[in-house]
Design a protein around this nucleic acid. Structure first.
Ligand SMILES: [Mn+2]
Ligand SMILES: [Mn+2]
Ligand SMILES: [Zn+2]
Ligand SMILES: [Zn+2]
Lengths: 173, 173
DNA sequence: TCCTTATTGCAAACCGTTTGCAATAATATT
DNA sequence: AATATTATTGCAAACGGTTTGCAATAAGGA
């Protein structure tokens, strides 16, 4: 259940970091590589677990600190996923193609979705408010076709621009 | 700096709660009235402070528990405001007119914004994914005209559908 | 008015994240 | 290559927002 990550940015995180004068420690490289090859959005704990497979000595503060600098650099995005999975934050390498995150309030299934309407919001803001958008976080909760039950079962479910299913997690709301 | 609250829902929170069999305690009424007359998005602590002006004995758990049931009822929405203000959550009575929350990454100023493009996202999701949207949280970070500095000063800043300024808070990102 | 049970207040726990600090290691300088 | 500089790390402890356990209270139905 991979993310929409196929559309990759030119430079890797390591290069970007080095350009800004950050030191390339082994821990940093490791965290970068985990984020860049993540099949789904990861939270800090998951990143730590993954990192410890290769470097058992790595500490969670190192994860947090690196997430923090990368956030500040604008090369990764922090997601709440509507707090459907929990109170923690999730991270993904910033994508060239903007996408929203959609989750089913009933089964917890999450997926990414792309539509031109997203860009339209930014355009409207820039035109009507003279506001320069840097980043838009669009998180949507609703009910998937399956969960809406029997009366919908006959309908054809078009795939449309629905990108990929990501998870089915324990729902909370 | 009021919220877009002028567009009010038919029934008040108290009625809605009673309809669902919730007991109307004095504390609950108080919290409801605070939310309904809030001039801006409030976090739990602010709601508590406000409530204690009228009922000094009220406890924060009561605030949290009531926010929780109202969230579950879908009559209030929980906002992160991109965590520009802090890690806490902010709350507002659910509005009939969907709006996004936009914040300046430089000065922290937040405002609400309405555009038809928001509905377009929901429509696209429903059509292309057979997905029934219950709630969309759109939070946008960027740079306001003022903060973008001198080269923009000559330009006329249209008000557009920019609804209202809400706060200028200490920025974090 | 009594009964049932949802709701409250208090206290403590919880959990994700941050901070202080000394030890370590990446880069710049020689 | 050796050294100096200082960013980065790991450990431990703190932090802050939120949740939980439990006994006392009070709302709403009988
Ligand atoms: Mn994503
Ligand atoms: Mn959040
Ligand atoms: Zn579902
Ligand atoms: Zn600004």
């Amino acid at each position: 259940m991979p993310m929409v990550h196929n559309i990759r940015r030119q430079a890797g995180l390591a290069e970007l970091a080095q350009q800004r004068g950050l030191r390339l420690t082994s821990q940093r490289r490791l965290i970068f590589s985990i984020l860049e090859s993540a099949p789904t959005h990861l939270n800090a704990k998951q990143i730590l677990e993954e990192a410890r497979k290769q470097d058992p000595g790595i500490d969670q503060v190192t994860v947090y600190r690196n997430l923090s600098v990368m956030k500040r650099m604008g090369v990764i995005d922090e997601l709440d996923l509507l707090h459907l999975r929990g109170e923690e934050h999730y991270y993904e390498v910033r994508q060239l193609r903007e996408h929203c995150h959609v989750g089913c309030l009933s089964c917890g299934q999450m997926f990414e979705f792309v539509t031109p309407a997203m860009k339209a919001i930014n355009k409207a803001l820039e035109k009507e408010c003279n506001y320069k958008v840097a980043y838009a976080r669009i998180e949507i909760g609703g009910y998937c076709a399956k969960c809406r039950g029997k009366e919908e079962q006959g309908k054809v479910i078009q795939k449309g621009k629905r990108v990929r299913s990501l998870t089915s997690a324990t729902s909370r709301i």
